[in-house]
Computed example of a mutant assay.
Amino acid sequence: MQSEPGKTLLRWAYAAVAWLAVSFVWHVQMGVMYEDTMDPDDGTPVWLFLSYDALIVLMSVVGVVCVLATVKPWGRRAPYWLVRAPLWIGCAVLTMRGVPGLVENVTTATGLTPHGLLGMEKEAVDTGSWDFWKTMVINGYFFLGATLLVPATVLSRRSRRTAKTTRTVDPARPARTPLDQAEHHALIPYPATGRRTRATEAAAARGAALADRAEPAQEAEQGSSAEDRHEARRRAMADLRVRLDRGREERADIPNRTVEGRTVHHRDGGR
């Protein structure tokens, strides 16, 4: 089950993908019907218009892939910078394109800046014309893209940090009790040379210390009285000592068996 931050990231990411999909379709249509889209009085060369339109189409496709990579399992295999860099570039472009233009349209429509935000228009802008409202719709669409892509990018970064700092626990794998851990550490074999090392001695000591720690569930099963719990711990420690002594005896026999094997080998070679 996903956490609340994960669900929030999914909502913002899918909303940004929907915006990018509309942008893709919009600019593909503009490229196909460039004769109707281009202003004949603008004087912009056709190749420049089509190149710009193709760039927007390509950026929309890359944006969809990068946003989906932040919420899909296959995105974890992609390099971090390969996903993050296009997203932050897209956030910067949409913010610089949509925010100033929409602010200027709003202030012009409300009469605060009738000659434009910078006052560069010689005459007051006709707020009732189709061109003015078409420009406001376009700027509003870019502003909407910024408000969707920026949160998706920021949340994906926080989600990645959380995933790094959170330890994943497998619920299907039962946890070890202190007695199981003690037995595990106590039976760690020494190297084949038969020499004791600090690591193996420390592991055995940790195992003995862990045996003194009884789980609440084990205490409930072993008895409720202090005498029963003390007797259970005493039996556990006695069993652990037996296992430790047996392991030390087996490890002590390793050098003897090795020497005997070499002696027999030399004798066979001498024959």
Rank of each mutant, 00 (worst) to 15 (best):
E201M: 02
R213H: 06
D228L: 15
L240F: 00
R257L: 10
A203D: 12
L187T: 14
R257Y: 00
Q218W: 15
G269Q: 15
A252D: 14
P189Y: 03
P191K: 11
H265T: 12
H184W: 10
S224Y: 02
R243S: 14
R243I: 14
A226E: 12
A205L: 10
N256A: 14
R213Q: 09
Q218Y: 15
M237V: 04
R246P: 00
R198D: 12
S225Y: 01
A182N: 07
G223Q: 11
A217F: 12
P189R: 14
T200I: 05
R213V: 15
R248A: 12
D268F: 06
R176P: 01
R257F: 01
A205S: 07
D228T: 05
E183N: 02
E201R: 03
T193H: 08
D268H: 10
G261E: 13
P255R: 13
D180S: 10
V264N: 03
I254Y: 03
T166V: 05
L187V: 10
R234Q: 08
T166C: 06
A220M: 13
Y190V: 14
G194A: 03
L187R: 09
D245A: 15
V264H: 03
A208G: 11
T200F: 01
S225Q: 05
I254S: 11
L187S: 10
E231M: 06
R267E: 10
R262I: 15
T200Q: 06
E250W: 08
T177V: 08
E249V: 10
A172F: 00
V169I: 15
T197D: 06
G247V: 11
D228Y: 00
H185N: 14
A172V: 05
A205Q: 05
G194Y: 01
G223E: 13
A226G: 02
A217L: 11
A186Y: 01
P189V: 12
A203E: 11
I254H: 11
